[in-house]
Design a binder for these strands. Structure first.
Lengths: 170, 170
DNA sequence: ACCTTCCGTGTGATCTTATAACATTCAATA
DNA sequence: TATTGAATGTTATAAGATCACACGGAAGGT
């Protein structure tokens, strides 16, 4: 079930690479389903469909883009439908919100309990998730020094991905 | 002109502390004015007023909140008035946008050319700017490894500030 | 089996945040 | 002084997010 996507192990830190997409979607859905069962969470049709949409696209999607796809699949077409499903996914670590883009993306390392960091290409809009525990280090140090308690972090780098960088060179 | 605000030097890394507010506002305005002169930028009345509003409040302010204060001061009352002034301030390092809050805050270290990081208190909504060059380290390492070129970073920690933490204990 | 309660869903309305498009004003300078 | 380009003002609208309320169905107690 655990398909081999980009590298030797699942700890390859990026999302700019090619991979077995169908497998990655199926895996993630199955994994989410299992996780919900264990945790007593309701992995309802809308929620499942929403996660599947994010996984299929494999990039950051605005809530209204998600909403339209949900509508196409026969679900409700009002904003709360999408926002509620997205909130559920984010709250349970199946997806993340990219604040810079006001958009959502499926989590690249679900279940692993992490403070995510992202690289956002401003040209092709691809978003890669780095499983950076390290990134938090400096911030958490500064926070400790001032007595600030961190509950959540937003770490997003905007720039140009390898692919677009190559094209620009040509 | 360089008033002594929170500590021995201007490199104290936080904004949760008391300080000479009038002085800090005046200093920052004067500094911005000088900087604009040197750079050939036009520090117009709206722009000046906008920066002054942010400095006065000393916390993150939504564009529409800024707009209302501008209107009270006799400037135009339509959104672009505020957004344009804010864009100018952000583009030139006099202010930052807090993505998590869709809000703007005056820069705590203007002129110093930095990749800012913020601590946001979810209770009192105070925002402190850390002059963290270090925070970027891990991310930039990950970026280098994948060939991603970073142009801008968003680093925001949400949690509870020292003051609110104390109150909660009581 | 029934009831009740809670959670999730659907819908309409509304609020907040942000930008497009175009006219007008103003300062720098040729 | 005429020209030009940037800044401002205004109208309109797009994009993102939430509120409030009705309905329905699953979980748990009786």
């Amino acid at each position: 079930m655990t398909s081999n996507r980009v590298g030797p192990a699942s700890d390859t830190p990026l999302g700019f690479a090619k991979h077995d997409h169908a497998g990655c979607v199926a895996d993630a859905l199955a994994s989410a389903e299992r996780h919900c069962e264990v945790e007593g969470l309701r992995f309802t049709p809308v929620r499942r469909a929403t996660l599947e949409i994010l996984l299929q696209e494999h990039r950051a999607l605005g809530a209204y883009a998600v909403l339209e796809k949900l509508r196409e699949s026969g679900f409700g077409s009002q904003p709360p439908v999408a926002y509620r499903a997205l909130d559920f996914l984010v709250a349970n670590g199946f997806a993340h919100k990219i604040e810079r883009l006001n958009a959502f993306i499926a989590c690249g390392h679900p279940g692993e309990a992490h403070a995510p960091a992202f690289m956002i290409c401003r040209i092709c809009e691809a978003v890669a998730e780095a499983s950076s525990a390290a990134t938090q280090g400096a911030l958490s140090h500064a926070a400790k020094a001032t007595g600030f308690t961190i509950e959540r972090t937003v770490v997003e780098a905007e720039g140009v991905c390898p692919g677009c960088s190559e094209k620009a060179d040509a």
